Amino acid sequence: MKSFATALLNKIEFPVLLAGLVIAGGLWGLEELMEVARATTPHAFDTEIMLAFRQAGQPDVPIGPAWLEGAVRDITSLGSTSVLVLLTTAVIIYLLLIRRPTTALLMFVAVAGGQVLSSLLKFEVDRPRPDLVSHLVNETSLSFPSGHAMLSAVTYLTLGSMAARFLPGRTTKTFVLGLAILTTLLVGASRVYLGVHWPSDVLAGWCAGFAWAMLCWLVARFLQRRHAVADSE
Rank of each mutant, 00 (worst) to 15 (best):
L194Y: 00
P42A: 13
G20L: 08
E124T: 06
A66N: 04
T158C: 13
M214G: 03
H135G: 14
L33R: 02
D131N: 15
A112R: 05
L121V: 11
K11E: 00
R165V: 05
G209N: 10
T41L: 07
L215P: 04
W198T: 05
A7R: 06
E69H: 07
V36E: 00
W198C: 01
E31V: 03
A24R: 03
L179H: 04
V187H: 06
P42Q: 12
L68W: 03
M107D: 00
S141R: 14
I181V: 10
S143V: 13
V109L: 12
R221W: 09
V192P: 00
L33M: 01
G160N: 07
L51I: 00
A163Q: 09
T41D: 06
L27Q: 01
K173E: 09
S146Q: 07
G178F: 00
K173A: 07
T89A: 15
D60P: 10
Y94P: 01
G209A: 12
R129V: 14
A110F: 07
M1F: 06
I63T: 07
A149R: 12
A112F: 12
L142F: 07
S80D: 06
G205V: 04
K11T: 06
F175C: 03
T172M: 13
A180E: 01
V16C: 08
L121I: 11
W206C: 04
V187M: 09
W67D: 09
E233K: 08
G114Y: 03
S152W: 01
E233M: 14
I75E: 15
I92N: 08
S232G: 10
V109H: 06
V111E: 15
V16P: 01
R100M: 14
L17T: 15
T40K: 08
E32C: 05
A90P: 10
G188D: 05
W67E: 09
T174W: 03
L186S: 04
L84M: 14
E69C: 03
P168W: 05
L68S: 02
A163E: 05
V72P: 01
F222H: 15
E31W: 07
A104D: 03
T103C: 02
I181F: 09
A44F: 10
S146P: 06
V137M: 11
T47K: 14
P42C: 10
M1D: 11
A204H: 05
A110E: 01
L167M: 10
L179F: 00
F210D: 02
A204K: 07
Y193A: 01
P199D: 06
A5V: 14
L9W: 12
A52T: 04
F144M: 13
P15A: 08
L86E: 14
L142M: 12
I98P: 12
D231E: 15
D46L: 12
T183F: 02
A220G: 13
S152N: 07
R165I: 06
A39H: 13
